[in-house]
């Protein structure tokens, strides 16, 4: 790589400090987890991370996260559309409140959702008589994970939708496309990278989530126990190596997701950059 001359000062200081702080706070502690797992042989490691109770927790965590992120993809797109395209009373207020799951501590979200969806709660009391049990079941996990992922799709799709040129839609209309054809042939493909980024962000966030889920889940082994809770349980039993083994699996998955998200964002920004040109 050719070294471009840059006259601004402070490069070694700022980069040096960045790398030092990053190493101390993030990289060295994370490597501790990887080193800890080497205490286990591969077969021991494999045994721990594929135990039936752990497998059941993966299934729940990934399944519920996927469903939650999918719900958010649909309704997040809808919400972004409504906020960008239409005018209605209270729009600005609602726009600001969409970020509530970012700002509200997860424990508060957890107990609030439990209160609302429990047997005697505002919504639960309507659902229970119809045989729909939410609180203390996997459905509750889905509800909590939908809540915490809600802003991601809205906030990634919204700016792209705002920047969409109306000319392209007019061009489609002048060529004879009806509104629905214009949406799925022109608008939706333009939104797709952002939508997928939002989905991936919501999914990644949901997989690691702990606070909002444990109150509503009921935490029954094999049924409604999420993977982060497995780690906590093993820690409480002083099984540090076991907890770390499961944590390493989660770390690897998070890292892969992060790479996927970066790839999606690159794709998304490339599409938008073309629009400016």
């Amino acid at each position: 790589m050719s070294k471009k001359t840059n006259v601004l000062p402070g490069f070694s200081l700022s980069l040096g400090y960045t790398l030092l702080y990053l190493s101390l706070i993030v990289l060295i502690p994370l490597s501790a987890a990887l080193i800890k797992t080497t205490e286990l042989s591969f077969s021991e490691f494999w045994h721990v991370v594929t135990a039936p109770r752990v497998m059941a927790s993966y299934k729940l965590t990934f399944g519920a996260s996927f469903i939650g992120a999918s719900i958010n993809a649909v309704f997040g797109l809808l919400t972004a559309w409504v906020l960008v395209r239409y005018d209605f009373f209270g729009k600005k207020f609602i726009d600001a409140l969409v970020d509530l799951p970012f700002a509200l501590p997860t424990a508060v979200a957890g107990i609030a959702l439990t209160a609302v969806y429990a047997k005697n709660g505002w919504i639960g009391s309507f659902l229970e008589p119809n045989g729909i049990h939410v609180a203390f079941t996997p459905v509750g996990v889905v509800i909590a994970l939908t809540f915490i992922g809600l802003p991601f799709v809205v906030r990634t799709v919204q700016p792209v939708l705002e920047d969409l040129e109306s000319e392209t839609e007019e061009a489609a209309a002048s060529l004879g496309a009806n509104r629905w054809q214009t949406f799925y042939k022109i608008i939706f493909p333009a939104l797709l990278p952002a939508l997928m980024t939002g989905f991936a962000l919501a999914f990644a966030r949901a997989i690691g989530e702990y606070g909002s889920v444990i109150f509503i889940a009921g935490n029954m082994p094999m049924v409604s126990e999420i993977t982060p809770l497995i780690i906590i349980t093993k820690l409480e039993q002083y099984d540090y190596t076991g907890a770390t083994a499961v944590a390493v699996v989660m770390l690897l998955i998070s890292f892969l997701l992060l790479l996927a998200i970066n790839g999606l964002q690159w794709w998304s920004s490339r599409r938008n950059a073309e629009a400016i040109e």
């Binding site: 040129e165 000319e167 392209t168 002048s174 060529l175 004879g176 042939k185």
Partner: peptide, 28 residues
């Protein structure tokens, strides 16, 4: 506008970015 059968050429072209040139022309 859909029923008027007009050809409209926009100032900034308004080509569909995610479609090939061929698909752009075939769209109508």
């Amino acid at each position: 506008v859909r029923e008027r059968q007009v050809g409209f050429v926009f100032q900034h072209y308004a080509l569909f970015r995610h479609m090939t040139v061929f698909e752009n022309v075939a769209f109508g």
